[in-house]
Design a protein around this nucleic acid. Structure first.
Lengths: 261, 261
DNA sequence: GGCGTTCCCTAACGTTGTTAGGGATGACCA
DNA sequence: TGGTCATCCCTAACAACGTTAGGGAACGCC
């Protein structure tokens, strides 16, 4: 939005193969002492602003204001406003430590609890900053250093459980998608009870077109915690089954190319 | 973004309990013949614009231009630009018919294939309009009429498979999240191979911080189809297990008549 | 003490979403 | 047949936004 001038657009398409994500560009390195503005400080301030007023009211001017600075000054540290959002998203993953796996004692059974712990905290982080649950779909936060730390913990847990190769990647992404998807859905749909009722009413009014939805009351439901937990259970069951199958077939399943039935 | 004046902000917070989503407000009903502008036409034009130039270049002026009209005219049919995006998202679900379940013959085993078919097509729709994969997280497209038609087909398939009550809702959302999450992730991360390599390189450079990620090469992977299919298989396995458990617990005792498993 | 870099500043541009209000067209009813 | 009213697109304009151009103070370095 805003202006997004043409030269900017072209740079976005990767002119000269230049690095595009902020995480792939080096930050400013100050020769003097810690300057008043840094990527870290910008990220933190952005998080505060986003928490308070939501993503629509995050503007470069207001952000600069909070940092006792004027808007154009930010552009010394950041190439575009989207960079600021990337910084903010990564910052929220730095404020909570991913729960370290406790299951060194019983890796065979404990991995489910470990995965559930990581994902539960992860989800809590997203729900504490609802704007963030919406952002990942548009931006590319998947390579910020603090986000990667969470991914590392999750994937390490899966490796300890016995996943390797393509199964490992598929499991990682499936779990990631479950957290992200459920948080996004919840944030987008968790509006006033009144509005949910209106929506469900409309569905019921067209029950010849939506017979199942009308009967299941699915638009009225708001047990997000339960839905998340139950869905995770489905996934973990499926993962456990894959693990059992791999063990039965003998090891080295990971090296096979294809995968499931 | 743009301006988002204060009165608009307050209306968004649900002033007077007024309906907020465009789907809960009645459309303009013309007494004369079909007017040059309608919600449907606006939605279609928006989709075309979004497909061509991406979401950053969707502006009210350009959209109006395509409709041979000027920007303010759109506001007779639409309350805000976000409404336009809602219309566009719902429109893409209207251009493809959800695959009707073929499994009336063998509901016991066929539901997995039916679910996979619906979700595969669903995913294809999102990937054909990459901007849409990103939008659902921010907006509230989950109640557009054509989107609901897809949800109806999915949930009906699950009901036919034997899901009821909370399990039904959890299964619906879990599958929904898998499609949405995987499409979003793919769109966000499917950049140039070069950039993915750079990212993975950086991870490997900090392999003391990300040992697992460095080893699994997960940032370099781009087999999105395979990852989606494998994750779906995990989910379906978990759902099948739940179904089997429910059959063992419930039906065996309660209904003596039926010929369950 | 001059040089170059770092880093924030002032000023300004073009574009954006949106509002205010006008006026033409046709439906409807006397 | 003429008056009234809603429909629906128009012109004009505004405030706010992301971003650029370029200036200048402060400091490290030789």
């Amino acid at each position: 939005m805003g202006s997004e001038r043409k030269p900017r657009d072209q740079r976005k398409r990767g002119k000269d193969g230049e690095a595009q994500s902020i995480w792939l560009r080096p930050g400013r390195t100050s020769t003097r002492g810690e300057p008043p503005l840094t990527r870290a400080r910008i990220g933190t301030a952005a998080v505060a602003l986003l928490d308070e007023d939501g993503i629509d009211r995050l503007t470069m001017r207001r952000l600069a204001d909070r940092l006792a600075v004027v808007a154009p000054s930010l552009y010394w540290h950041v190439e575009t406003k989207d960079d600021v959002i990337d910084l903010a998203v990564d910052a929220i993953f730095g404020e909570t430590e991913p729960p370290a796996a406790a299951g060194t004692a019983d890796p065979a059974a404990g991995w489910r609890a470990d995965v559930a712990a990581v994902l539960g905290t992860w989800r809590a982080v997203l729900l504490r900053h609802p704007w963030a649950a919406a952002v990942p779909a548009r931006r590319k936060p998947g390579i910020g250093p603090q986000f990667l730390a969470w991914m590392e913990v999750l994937q390490a847990t899966l490796v300890r459980a016995g996943f390797t190769g393509r199964d490992l990647l598929a499991a990682t992404w499936a779990l990631h998608n479950h957290v992200l998807g459920s948080a996004s859905t919840q944030v987008a749909l968790d509006v006033t009870e009144e509005e949910r009722d209106t929506a469900q009413e409309r569905v019921r009014a067209e029950s010849d077109r939506y017979p199942t939805l009308a009967a299941s009351d699915y638009l009225r439901d708001d047990d997000w915690d339960g839905t998340f937990a139950a869905g995770l259970e489905f996934l973990l069951d499926g993962l456990a089954a894959r693990l059992a199958r791999a063990a039965a077939e003998g090891r080295g399943v990971a090296d096979e190319a294809g995968g499931g039935a």
